[in-house]
Amino acid sequence: MKDWAGVGEAFSASYADLCAGTFSTMHRALGAPKRRNLLDVGAGDGRLAAAWADAGWIVRACEPEASMRAVSRRRHPQVDTVSGALPDLPFEDGAFDVVVANFVLNHVASPRRSAAELRRVSRDAVVATTWMLSPSWFWAEITERAGVEPFAGAKLSAAEDFERTADGFARMLREAGLEHVTVAEHGWTWNAEPDALWLSVEGGVAGAGALYTGLDDDDRRRFRAAFDRVIEERRTGGVLPLEHRAAIAVATAG
């Protein structure tokens, strides 16, 4: 799995904006907060947790990476941000009315154990998302044009992996013991700033960042040249419109 150590600032300046694209759909699925409390697991830079708080929820953010927590506490001091990682969260059973995990179960070593842990600490509902079409397609094209070997991170075993479709995500969650699971597909266009995209690479964010970090100087120059060519070909009005798609699951207690 990808190592996220030290990438808090670079993530916040780039992919945090992309990942927030699921908020409107999750928000509609849960309805009015009605004084309920909510735990955001794998909260990253706290952007989504702050959005939940602004919508009226009583929010706590849980994030295992120190650099992410530092950004969250500085930029969103109104959110209580604590350390904690799946599949063993530092909370009692049913501690929160609602638990959300935005693009988290696709990054953990044991998705089913982690999903079961989300259910354990929730009373009413779990909302989780996973990529169906992630930014990896964009970086795969650049990697191919640059003529460098693609990033080969650690993969889930066949027993742990799940199909990255709405049905596959729902099936995995049910296997983890979650009930009353519904999954919807959500698509959106991220109008990415080219400078932010490149900052994510230099900052070591996600697979593209891990790949770039391991390249020698010549390969880095080829990678940058390929990036610039793709940006020039695809940019519209100074931004790069990138299509993404996610599966958004809601599991309720009954």
Rank of each mutant, 00 (worst) to 15 (best):
E149L: 07
R171Y: 00
G42H: 11
G21A: 12
F103N: 13
N191H: 13
C19P: 06
A158C: 01
D161E: 06
G214F: 00
P194K: 02
L173D: 02
I142V: 15
A159E: 15
D97Y: 09
A159R: 11
E193P: 01
R229A: 14
L30M: 14
E243T: 08
W131L: 01
R229W: 01
S122I: 08
G6L: 13
L173R: 03
G147H: 04
A109H: 10
R113W: 04
H186N: 06
R36S: 13
G94D: 11
S134Y: 02
V100M: 05
D40I: 12
D3W: 08
A50E: 13
Y15T: 10
Y15C: 09
A29S: 15
S24H: 12
R229F: 01
W137N: 05
L18T: 14
W198H: 03
G44V: 12
V41N: 14
F227N: 02
V181E: 05
V108N: 07
E163K: 04
A176H: 05
S122L: 06
L86S: 08
V100N: 03
G46R: 10
A196E: 06
G209E: 01
A166D: 05
H244Y: 11
G6H: 12
W131D: 00
T81R: 07
G207I: 00
A140M: 06
L86T: 07
W52F: 15
F169Y: 04
L39A: 15
A184G: 07
L133S: 08
R123Q: 15
T213A: 15
S157H: 01
R221C: 00
V183R: 03
R74F: 08
A13V: 09
E243Y: 10
A5F: 07
D45L: 09
F227I: 01
R164S: 00
G6D: 09
L199C: 09
P87M: 07
P87T: 08
D218E: 14
V41C: 14
F151R: 04
F227S: 03
M132L: 15
L215P: 04
D80L: 11
R119L: 13
E160G: 00
F11Q: 09
W188Q: 05
D88H: 15
A95M: 08
S72I: 06
R164K: 04
T189A: 06
D93Y: 08
R245L: 09
I58W: 10
F23T: 09
A196Q: 07
G31M: 13
V126H: 05
S24T: 13
D40V: 11
L133M: 11
V148D: 01
S114F: 09
F96M: 08
V205M: 00
F91S: 11
A146P: 06
E160Q: 10
N106R: 05
P90A: 12
F169K: 02
V104G: 09
I231K: 00
A158P: 05
L89A: 11
E92R: 11
F138L: 15
R145M: 03
I231D: 00
A55M: 10
F227K: 00
D216N: 14
G147W: 04
A49I: 11
V82A: 14
M172N: 03
R222G: 03
E63C: 09
R245V: 07
P64W: 10
W139V: 01
